[in-house]
C-alpha cells in the first residue's frame, strides 16, 4: 500500500478535466482510492494541473480526511463524538493506545494498524463505538478492546 500507482492518479486527474475548483474533490478521490496521498502523487497533480505544490500541501494538511503518510493494513477509528465521550470513549481510546503502543494518528511500526480519532460517526445509540476497516463495534467496554483488536492480523 506504500506505493501509489501514478496511472491511477492520472485517471483521477482526467475525471476533472476542464472543471474549476476541483482540487479538494480530486485529493479526496486519491485518498479514498489509495488511503493516503504520496509526495509523488502531489508532484503529478502539480505537474498536470499547473497548481503549485505549496497550494496542494496547504489543502492536504488542512483537511482531516487527507493523510500524507501511508496507512497500516487495518484502520481503526475510535469515535470521540460527544455522545461517545460521555459514555466513556476516552477510556476506550486509552486502552487501544496502550494495546497498540501508539498514539492516535499514528501507525504501528509493523504496519498492522493505523489509529484515528473521529468526531462522531452518527450512530450514537451504539456508543462508545470503534470501527475497524468499516466494521462497527458498538457498546465497547475497556475489557473488550483487546479481543476486538485480536480479530485483525
Amino acid at each position: 500500500m506504500a506505493e501509489i500507482d501514478l496511472k491511477g492518479v492520472d485517471e483521477i486527474i482526467d475525471r476533472y478535466k476542464g472543471e474549476e475548483g476541483v482540487l479538494i474533490q480530486l485529493l479526496l478521490d486519491i485518498q479514498n482510492e489509495f488511503y493516503w496521498i504520496s509526495p509523488e502523487a502531489i508532484a503529478r497533480i502539480s505537474d498536470k494541473m499547473r497548481i503549485p505544490k505549496s497550494q496542494i500541501y496547504r489543502i492536504a494538511t488542512f483537511y482531516k480526511a487527507m493523510s500524507l503518510k501511508p496507512v497500516g493494513r487495518h484502520i481503526i477509528q475510535v469515535c470521540l463524538g460527544t455522545a461517545c465521550q460521555i459514555r466513556g470513549a476516552p477510556k476506550i481510546m486509552d486502552r487501544v493506545e496502550e494495546n497498540l503502543k501508539i498514539k492516535e494518528g499514528a501507525t504501528t511500526p509493523d504496519m498492522r494498524f493505523s489509529l484515528r480519532r473521529v468526531n462522531c460517526l452518527g450512530c450514537c445509540a451504539m456508543g462508545p463505538v470503534i470501527v475497524v476497516d468499516g466494521k462497527y463495534h458498538g457498546k465497547v467496554t475497556p475489557v473488550k478492546v483487546k479481543d476486538i483488536l485480536e480479530q485483525y492480523e
Binding site: 452518527g122 450512530c123 451504539m126
Partner: peptide, 11 residues
C-alpha cells in the same frame, strides 16, 4: 420495510 440508515447499517 426495513430501516437502512447509517445507524441501522452499523447494527
Amino acid at each position: 420495510t426495513l430501516c437502512s440508515g447509517t445507524a441501522c447499517h452499523a447494527t
